[in-house]
Write a protein that binds this DNA or RNA. Structure first.
Lengths: 204, 204
DNA sequence: CTGAATTTAGGTCAATTGTCCTATTTAATA
DNA sequence: TATTAAATAGGACAATTGACCTAAATTCAG
């Protein structure tokens, strides 16, 4: 059955990318070796090389996976509620939802971005897209809240905040920092005054 | 002359640590090899090994150097002005002063901290001290401004902000983000209302 | 100057890295 | 079933890593 073959091929490849995704997050891109990934997926290095010729190829696949996952997550948030505030709250709460991982490894987007910057890696731009996805979506939400002019700045502020919180919570290994910052940001979100364009929110 | 010997020894060692400090910042701890550092200082690997037995030893020395430099910088800020706001402004402005480097490599403290977390490196706690120095000093300044109860939270917020800005400015390679965020934070600092303990500021 | 101590140079080592190759096994087709 | 294509296993590779060692050079005291 062609279906089976294709499915299997896809599955092994998918297994590799998913394992690499986690290992890149936990141990960093460079500190993760072919052997680490292969061992994790329980395949031979030869089989591994059959699916990916170079390490950069795996990185590209991992970034593509993260982009897809991110888009899917955001689409879910968008579908779950029509209220921009409610949507933005979802973003704020990622920090709490992934608390334990963040305390250990920081934010997957921020840490990958920083590592690639130091390696001066060609995939830098692709990793940047991960931030852009959040940025544009948040911008849309703030626009819907009537902050058209400042929407992008507000979106960027929220990204800045999330990266800072992840970095410091991880540095101090202190979940109280995380909880406290999230609570404060939620309160800020609640209190935010809709801009004068609020009435036109429907056009978003 | 004993003086010369000791001075030379100190100088070579110091050169190594300073080169490692820069290379760790630019390329990361793990991606920097003995050979890289030795080549940079223009000494042999053997000479290098004479001064540092293991890579961890260099890391400790680099962290110690950064701690010393940070303390000295902060001491300067403290000496330059008695006004807490003026002092805090110095902190905010690090981002602008080191703009070009931050765009390329992020914040040296944040990125090192994140890398060590992923390596699960024993020096994590030492690197954390770098953040603590800023945190406590900022806390003192906010206390002097009369925000005793919230001083530590305000200090942490400022650290969070600085880390976030560094990460995103670097991710987007966009100095406008940096300039805009710094300007906004400076405005916030200006507008901040002194707490009711302001009159007692002298005791700090 | 001579001898001892410190400092430096450069070679060696085992381990690990990313990459590549060739057999063998598994699956699909005719 | 026989043939072909896809997938896997595992070995080999050159290069690089951190670590270690010894011999030479430099420095300084007596």
């Amino acid at each position: 059955m062609v279906q089976n073959m294709v499915a299997n091929r896809k599955k092994t490849r998918c297994d590799i990318v998913e394992a690499a995704n986690i290992l890149f997050y936990h141990h960093g891109y460079e500190h993760t070796s072919f052997a680490d990934i292969a061992e994790n997926v329980k395949i031979s290095r030869g089989n591994f090389y059959y699916h990916f010729k170079t390490k950069d190829e795996i990185l590209d696949a991992v970034i593509a996976l993260r982009l897809a996952e991110t888009r899917s997550m955001i689409a879910q948030w968008t579908d779950q509620s029509d209220a921009p505030k409610e949507r933005i709250r979802h973003f704020i709460n990622i920090l709490k939802r992934h608390q334990s991982k963040i305390l250990l490894y920081g934010c997957p987007v921020g840490s990958l971005t920083l590592e690639l910057a130091k390696l001066n890696h060609p995939a830098q731009k692709d990793a940047q897209a991960l931030f852009s996805v959040f940025r544009h979506w948040l911008c849309q939400q703030f626009t819907a809240l009537g902050h058209g002019e400042n929407a992008d700045k507000l979106a960027l502020d929220l990204l800045v905040w999330s990266q800072g919180v992840a970095t410091l919570a991880s540095a101090f290994q202190d979940e109280a920092i995380l909880a406290q910052e999230v609570a404060k940001k939620e309160a800020w979100l609640e209190q935010i005054k809709p801009g004068f364009l609020e009435k036109h929110r429907s056009f978003i």
